[in-house]
């Protein structure tokens, strides 16, 4: 291989193969679209779809932050999630309105759905209990919906402009995310009381400019309503969603949430029928197993 002796610059580096392979290794438009759907669903549906990751994130935020917990003492576990996003955005110096909606959703719905049952109890209990029931979200069987454990990227810490973060900060054990976060960043949370946003950050405060954010906001609100046990409100929000976005990207989530809301009403028969319709329509939906569980007769 004499001609490769100049290893520094490799004038003979043959890139034809690389160039040819490049387009072949790109996603097809179908793959691209389906991936996007999956991402949006995971973002909007929180624990229902890609929930483990977001649930963990929210949990770690919740357990990191004494401030958030005490602020959340009289609120639901999902407000701890809101608290987290408040701190995250305030750290960047300016709240980016459009995105804060989405980020809030992640935190809220991740805890919300994930801890649907526990949460109702948590709402009426002390901060300690909030923390406990939140942490329970880390391990529940719902997470089995996913074929694998989602990553625990330390979203709360490590602003992305800092590109020198040592790898060691992110050991590969996702389940430990919560405790690690707590060790890593006690001062941050102490200093960034996240209570204010917790109390009042309705999704509609800021004008939503794109339809995804609007869809997301509607579903988030519906979701919060379900968590409150206010199925009627949830259903009307979901119907509003259906009207505004008949073919919206989050249609599947809407249908699933609707069925879920129905499960919380007395119309159990109808709810189960709806779940079955959903099953027929989205036989491969990752939400299906959970929906069935939620709606199963006790």
């Amino acid at each position: 291989m004499k001609r490769h002796e100049h290893m520094g610059d490799h004038p003979k580096m043959d890139r034809a193969l690389l160039n040819q392979a490049r387009s072949e290794m790109s996603p097809t438009s179908a793959q691209r679209a389906s991936l996007k759907r999956g991402v949006l669903a995971a973002v909007a549906g929180g624990a229902m779809v890609g929930g483990a990751a977001t649930a963990k994130a929210a949990v770690s935020a919740a357990s990191t932050s004494k401030a958030a917990l005490s602020a959340a003492a009289t609120k639901s576990a999902s407000t701890a999630g809101l608290g987290f996003s408040a701190s995250a955005s305030s750290l960047t110096g300016g709240v980016i309105a459009k995105w804060s909606v989405a980020v809030v959703l992640v935190g809220a719905s991740a805890l919300g759905v994930g801890a649907l049952v526990q949460q109702k109890r948590a709402e009426r209990s002390s901060p300690v209990h909030v923390a406990q029931s939140s942490r329970a979200v880390e391990v529940p069987r719902e997470m089995g919906l996913r074929r694998y454990d989602p990553p625990s990227i330390p979203i709360a810490g490590a602003p992305i402009v800092n590109l020198e973060i040592p790898q060691e900060q992110h050991p590969p054990a996702p389940v430990r995310a919560a405790s690690r976060e707590r060790e890593d960043a006690p001062s941050r949370t102490a200093d960034a009381p996240v209570a204010p946003l917790v109390a009042g950050a309705p999704a509609t405060t800021e004008p939503v400019t794109d339809s995804l954010a609007a869809e997301t906001a509607l579903l988030r609100d519906a979701h919060t309503a379900i968590n409150r046990g206010d199925a009627a409100a949830a259903i009307s929000l979901l119907e509003a969603h259906a009207q505004r976005f008949p073919g919206g990207v989050l249609m599947e989530e809407r249908v699933a949430f609707h069925a879920l809301a129905m499960c919380h009403t007395s119309a159990q028969e109808e709810a189960r029928a709806e779940v079955e319709r959903f099953a027929a329509q989205y036989p491969h939906s990752p939400q299906l197993a959970r929906l069935r569980r939620a709606c199963s007769p006790h």
């Binding site: 389906s34 991936l35 990751a53 977001t54 750290l91 960047t92 992640v106």
Partner: peptide, 18 residues
Amino acid sequence: VADLLQDVFVVVHRRLPE
């Protein structure tokens, strides 16, 4: 790849404001 990128973009979505 689809699974991986889904996780990646969920993280991206969450962290984009930063």
